[in-house]
Amino acid sequence: MKYAYYPGCSLRGTGRAYEESLLAVFRALEVEVEEIDDWNCCGATTYMSVDELTSYALASRNLALAERDHSEIIAPCAACYLVLNKTQHYIRDYPDIKLVVTRALDAIGLKYHDKVRVRHPLDVLLNDVGPKAIAAKVKVPLNGLKIAPYYGCQIVRPYSTFDDQGDPTSMERLLEACGAKTVHYPLKTTCCGGSQKGTLPEVGLDLIHYLLSEAQKNGAEVITTVCPLCQFNLESFQKEAGDRHHPTAVPVLYFSQLLALALGAPADAIGLQRGFVPIGPVFANKEIAYA
């Protein structure tokens, strides 16, 4: 089966490494994807907070476009994943919203039949491919690399059905299949502050610091994320958060970067050179001989 692929705006900007590495993982595991034709912005958390009705119409254009040729969409970005799911729920639950969306789509010659399922790459990799199949294809074992798996909010709450909302474990299972070790990380679903760093910086920096220092304290050599905004916050403001509290130095990668690396993808093809906190020394220390 071929999945519809909905990258979203961040994966074309600050989150480029997420897309590069995820597509490498899909290639290595023979997961076929096709980008949704002429997809638009999902509206994200920002649009939702000014004009919800419009944001449902925006999201539904993508659902309708995907539905023409596919029965499942893969949405890697946390905000996109949430918004597409929420839109489906609200169209089902509220006749007024359904009417607004149906008419808006009609105006651009599209129809939505509620026949497409929105899924996260973690879900697809774990449940459609499976840790065993992944382990069988590992070329560069992660040699016990100690990872703090950080999920953030919007993948697991409120609509996800593939994992626990407070203590998810899908990332652990995938990374452990590649030879990594995961550390105890109770803050794994606590919010990173989202765009708070831009709007109310003091608060944003506090939240970022708690997440980083907890990971470091529990022995993590790297933090893995599933969300472009989480990755950006934890990495780009690590120094600033450290200046405000006490310094930390933990590289922050997308989970897909480590999976792709283990599956034999070359480092510069999966965006490892795009990070700010150098990862090279960590790999050298673990004798991970990546391509």
Binding site: S49, C153, R157, T189, C191, G193, G194, Q196
Partner: peptide, 12 residues
């Protein structure tokens, strides 16, 4: 109102 980041911890 401005501090809420929509993390959904309250709701679930």
């Amino acid at each position: 109102i401005w501090l809420c980041t929509a993390c959904y911890a309250c709701m679930v």
